[in-house]
């Protein structure tokens, strides 16, 4: 009986000649975390803004929680919360004032609004910073305040637009914990991200977008089956042994061995960690010394390479995968 959280058909938004979103069909079930994965400029934010009724589509249609995004915007606004890409807190106000403002605008009165504000500040570990202006907050604190501001009422559907972009790893982990907690409470979440690892950690289902279109879709496991399980990166003590190392890796592993930016480094896709470990053993047996290795999730660049045969647009490609190689960094 209940309508899906999100249903779109050919949803599009063109800005003049630029096709920011170019025909997206999406269906998001209630209660799940759905990730929209893509590089900068892929149309993620435009998609979210349309679904959150901030932007009118130029084509196609969409229903959010059973309501049409064009004709029933007000109904949708009652049921959703949006945490925008750039922390949409008022920097001039204190954390306390920010939440009190939104509590009042949500219809809470007097002491109810104050209680909710204090409760949220405490829940997100911001009580000590309550009296400070948000412009003095760290990126992580700002994000937490921003998410708290989305939870004054209980949203049926929460949009998180790139919730961890620009955060340090510790803050990122905190945001992930928060997102998991929200999902455990039954809130449907649509999040956008540039990190496959983030989508993998949080989302039940992932849609990969590029140039305003969905180019792949599925669970994290399905996507990884297409892309490859992960990337083994090795750093050689000496670049002279690169040829040998490359040959050994090619023999041991299915994936193509790729040169990395550094002359003494190599990247290779591995289907599972055990295969990677075996390959490392073979290198060691051949007497090839390493200064380090890492086994990481494929970065967005690699996902794109696997799906489209080309990296994402050069203007955004460099940054996107940077934070992904943190899984199992180790020095030999």
């Amino acid at each position: 009986m209940t309508a899906p959280a999100i249903e779109t058909t050919g949803l599009a938004r063109h800005f003049g000649d630029k096709r920011a979103v170019d025909g997206i069909d999406l269906d998001v079930r209630r209660g799940e975390i759905f990730a929209v994965l893509g590089p900068n400029g892929a149309g993620k934010t435009t998609l979210v803004r349309m679904l959150a009724t901030l932007l009118r589509p130029t084509g196609g249609s969409a229903r959010v929680l059973g309501h049409d995004i064009e004709r029933e915007a007000r109904e949708i606004r009652r049921k959703i919360s949006l945490t925008g890409q750039f922390a949409s807190v008022d920097e001039d106000l204190t954390g306390y004032e920010n939440l009190l403002l939104l509590s009042r605008l949500s219809g809470l009165k007097g002491s109810e609004a104050k209680d909710r504000t204090m409760g949220l500040l405490a829940a997100f570990d911001l009580s000590d910073a309550a009296a400070r202006q948000a412009k003095d907050y760290s990126g992580g604190m700002r994000r937490k305040l921003d998410i708290a501001a989305s939870l004054i009422r209980r949203p049926e559907l929460l949009f998180l637009d790139e919730p961890t972009t620009g955060l340090d790893p510790r803050s990122r982990n905190q945001v992930w914990d928060i997102v998991r907690g929200l999902a455990a409470s039954g809130t449907t979440i649509l999040l956008t991200t540039q990190y496959l690892e983030e989508a993998d950690q949080l989302a039940g289902e992932i849609a990969v977008v590029d140039h305003g279109r969905i180019i792949a879709r599925g669970t994290s496991a399905e996507l990884k089956a297409k892309v490859g399980g992960g990337v083994l990166q090795i750093h050689l003590t000496s670049a002279e042994r690169r040829e040998d190392a490359s040959r050994i890796l090619s023999d041991m592993l299915v994936g193509e061995v790729r040169a990395s930016g550094n002359a003494a480094s190599l990247n290779v896709d591995v289907a599972d960690p055990a295969a990677g470990l075996a390959a490392l053993g073979a290198l060691s047996a051949a007497g090839i010394a390493l200064t380090g290795y890492s086994l990481s999730q494929p970065s967005l660049d690699e996902v794109f390479f696997a799906l489209t045969g080309r990296p994402p647009e050069p203007e955004n490609g460099q940054e996107s995968g940077k934070d992904d190689a943190t899984d199992s960094e180790a020095a030999l």
């Binding site: 949220l120 829940a123 997100f124 998410i147 939870l151 914990d177 928060i178 907690g181 929200l182 455990a184």
Partner: peptide, 13 residues
């Protein structure tokens, strides 16, 4: 934090 976030939603007035 995970627990706190969950509680925060469930305790929404």
């Amino acid at each position: 934090l995970e627990q706190a976030a969950q509680d925060a939603v469930l305790s929404a007035p």
